[in-house]
């Protein structure tokens, strides 16, 4: 694949996120996220407002009575769910189709984003990191794949199958001259996301030591990504070709059992999401071949 420098150039051609979604992600990704400011941002976007109200009024949340008040809806849902919706709206259809160049099934990249984000939030709370920031950084950790996808769509170029045993980021770099964490961080920088969120995206497979620019957030996002992979989320041709940093585990005081429980949480988060938080009208079609939620009844697909 000789046109690999072109992959980095696709960043210029990726469609921008809607303004409201970008502002919301910036707000929730900042060290001092302000719920009131988040509500003001949502109000500026009609589709985002409609989505928040629809979810707040869904039967899955057990909400009694309908609310037409956005502030009450945000309180009911929490900033986390609002962030889901912001990115989901912004990313449709881009994010739902993400990962195609990596042989990730349709919709799976989004599931991996959600599972990893919930795991990061849980781990962040435990480790004293800002949970919303952990959530946003983990949610966006693989956006660099969008550049590979666009390159794939425009040129038809396939990612060659990586050899067993090689770190996939090293493989990407060796094969393409660039890797998805670097592209993702560059994209997040263009979107104006906070610097530490960009750093978490850049280092989500290889978090540096504290004296080399590392932080709790970087370790959290790295381990959340590993937990999502243990849950089988977002696996494509890269499989399990990403090492898990035991140094990051030591720094956060996380052992093997903790990481495995985090994987369970990531899986459950996706089950819950699919069980009810999505409007069936706009999600069923895109998930027709996805694993089912917790009460998964037998079903057939053609």
């Amino acid at each position: 694949m000789g046109c690999l420098m072109n992959i980095a150039e696709t960043l210029d051609r990726l469609p921008p996120l809607p303004a409201a979604a970008t502002r919301l992600l910036r707000e929730l990704g900042s060290p001092d996220a302000d719920l009131d400011e988040a509500v003001r941002i949502i109000r500026t976007d009609e589709s985002l407002t409609a989505s928040v109200l629809r979810t707040a009024n869904s039967a899955a949340l057990g909400a009694r009575g309908r609310t037409l008040d956005l502030r009450a809806a945000v309180v009911r849902l929490g900033a986390r769910t609002v962030a889901h919706q912001a990115l989901e709206l912004a990313a449709a259809p881009t994010f739902r189709d993400a990962g195609v160049a990596f042989d990730v099934r349709r919709g799976e990249q989004w599931r991996a984003a959600i599972g990893g984000a919930r795991a990061a939030e849980e781990l962040g709370i435990r480790c004293g990191a800002e949970p919303e920031r952990c959530f946003v950084a983990a949610l966006l950790r693989d956006i660099g794949r969008l550049a590979f996808d666009l390159h794939h769509q425009q040129t038809g170029a396939e990612i060659p199958r990586p050899p067993a045993g090689e770190d996939f980021v090293a493989f990407e770099h060796r094969t393409f001259g660039v890797d998805h964490p670097t592209l993702g961080a560059d994209l997040a920088t263009r979107w104006g996301l906070p610097a530490e969120v960009c750093a978490a995206i850049r280092h989500h497979h290889h978090p540096p030591a504290r004296d080399e620019g590392g932080s709790v957030l970087l370790d959290v996002v790295h381990l959340a990504d590993a937990a999502a992979r243990f849950a089988g989320l977002g696996l494509g041709c890269d499989g399990l070709l990403y090492p898990v940093s035991t140094a990051a585990m030591d720094r956060l005081g996380v052992d093997r059992g903790d990481l495995e429980r985090l994987a369970l949480s990531a899986a459950v988060a996706v089950f819950e999401l699919e069980a009810g938080l999505n409007d069936p009208d706009d999600s069923a079609a895109s998930r027709s071949d996805s694993p089912q939620p917790a009460d998964r009844s037998a079903r057939r697909t053609a």
Binding site: L233, D289, P291, Q292, R296, A298, R300, T301
Partner: peptide, 26 residues
């Protein structure tokens, strides 16, 4: 036609006409 088995899921069937499948076994 196929019956999809999700992660952490179990399915069984007496329907002979289908294929049972699971993805993302890491």
């Amino acid at each position: 036609p196929k019956l999809v088995v999700g992660v952490a899921d179990l399915q069984s069937t007496g329907d002979r006409t289908i294929r049972v499948i699971t993805h993302a076994l890491g």
